[in-house]
Design a protein around this nucleic acid. Sequence first.
DNA 1: GTTAGTATTTGCAAAAATGCAATGCTTGTT
DNA 2: AACAAGCATTGCATTTTTGCAAATACTAAC
Lengths: 302, 302
Amino acid sequence: MYDTKMNWDDIKIFLEVARSERLSTAAKRLSIDASTLSRRVHKLEESLSTKLFERTVEGHKLTQNGDKLLQFARQMELNASQAFKNITDENIQNSGQVRIGVTEAFGSFFISPHLIALQESFPNIDIELLHFSRNVKISRNEADIAIAVEKPKNTSTIISKLCDYQLQLYGHKTYLDKVMGRIDLSQLSSYRWVSYVDNLLFTEQLSYLKELDSNIKPHFQSTSITSQYTAIKSGLGIGILPCFLAEQDKSLIKLCSNEIKVIRSLYLITHPESKRLSHVNSVWQYLKQLVADKRTVLMPDN
Amino acid sequence: MYDTKMNWDDIKIFLEVARSERLSTAAKRLSIDASTLSRRVHKLEESLSTKLFERTVEGHKLTQNGDKLLQFARQMELNASQAFKNITDENIQNSGQVRIGVTEAFGSFFISPHLIALQESFPNIDIELLHFSRNVKISRNEADIAIAVEKPKNTSTIISKLCDYQLQLYGHKTYLDKVMGRIDLSQLSSYRWVSYVDNLLFTEQLSYLKELDSNIKPHFQSTSITSQYTAIKSGLGIGILPCFLAEQDKSLIKLCSNEIKVIRSLYLITHPESKRLSHVNSVWQYLKQLVADKRTVLMPDN
DNA sequence: GTTAGTATTTGCAAAAATGCAATGCTTGTT
DNA sequence: AACAAGCATTGCATTTTTGCAAATACTAAC
């Protein structure tokens, strides 16, 4: 993992030196002796095998690596102060920060609209929606709750199926007019397709086209589902879109709805260490309830 | 701020005890003596004036406050390991994590679609989009770059105007049919309005209706702009929407476009400590370029 | 060129933290 | 009931860290 010889407390004092740019003033602010400070900074540099400061006449200036450390040290400081605040403040029930990691489409078009309602239900919970372009690493604590299209291999996580969602073929009038308003199922590869950039997919779950017809060569590719949506809307071609995204836009026409139908699942993932926190669990339950309520948006055919 | 007497390194060892649930095994894993461990855990508890563990026969079980600390301790661990990785790995130029804090509308409808392109331009930069429902506190390091509708009062931040964006009055055919397809400017308060929940606004910048006619009483209110969008779309009433959101949906009709026009600005905010990091600066520049390229989407009339 | 001033580092004694051995506590076994 | 085993804690000698004072380095002013 990482070097446990690094003393986290030295990072705390590093922060102060980086900000004061002067060992002596940092020492005063920390109420420790400048000599101690000097020695501890050197110790930290040794444990990282790098120089963190350039000792100039103008004081301690951060090196490039010092800058890098500063970035994370600041986050550690934020966490430490949040921890302190959470613990010493009168224990407000069901309060704290919950970071939800989502994929683009589900995040922007399904969760986002209900995020604020969630915040109204739990005024003391601070929700953060994180858009990751790859799978969130719950085990690495990048988020408290992840919503993913595939189950992580990782064993140390709590996984619960959130829902199924349906995807269908959609097109816009502009393009359909060009192809006489009909899609011939036996000639799928002759149309202009909008899809993901194959080799940039972080999961096989999104390679819909291969399931339909391996001969299809997409005409417009994007790693962003929103871009695909916009492309289809502007008549660039046809493509597979989640119904919860496409159905809210009446200008899109559902095509071959009985023949072409893709079902995918979403999984709710968390870490045992997070799950037992009441506020994380509240959000978990809320999300479960939300998809239950919006079942018809996710699976229009059921 | 917070108690500086808290030793961050004690949080590191706390983590191990919380996970091992056993002082002795935690000691082995940390290669320090169990007695030291015991003393340091007690010291941490003292400095926080709280009990972190319930010492039971089954080992050290976290208390409620222990759980709270664990949550933040895990994040600190992630940060520490990222810092270590970033510094010890061969210095890959322009790499690292950049957290962009955005508001709902701009995040979901403007940034999100281009987020992946950004990631393609800078493959070594990890982008995180954070949706905050309030102003992001850059000074507290909640994000590396914030995009906000008003300048923060805080002096210690770097602020740069990102762009102006235009908002207009929109409605859907469903509702317009009910009011004979015309909006009478002298009778604005007689229509059904969709808007924000006044007293929940985190900034005055979003109280558009007061500027138009103080007599308007909204018929549908939501703190979520996406919900307002959906409400207007479904014919619940008319409302002010950002053009970059509404223009992409041809089913919405722009109303009184010459008479009712709201202009707002967005500001790019960062912290001096972040700004000098090359990867944060790269993203900053990218965002500047992006709004320049998409000028017409943000300000259709110019 | 000398001197005063400020800032960081080093020497050393005092203070604090650590490891080891021993103690006390509980549980499960004979 | 006695005993062994496992665990957290305490006493004490040892090691490490700390603060103070002194030393060193460097600049700026006269």
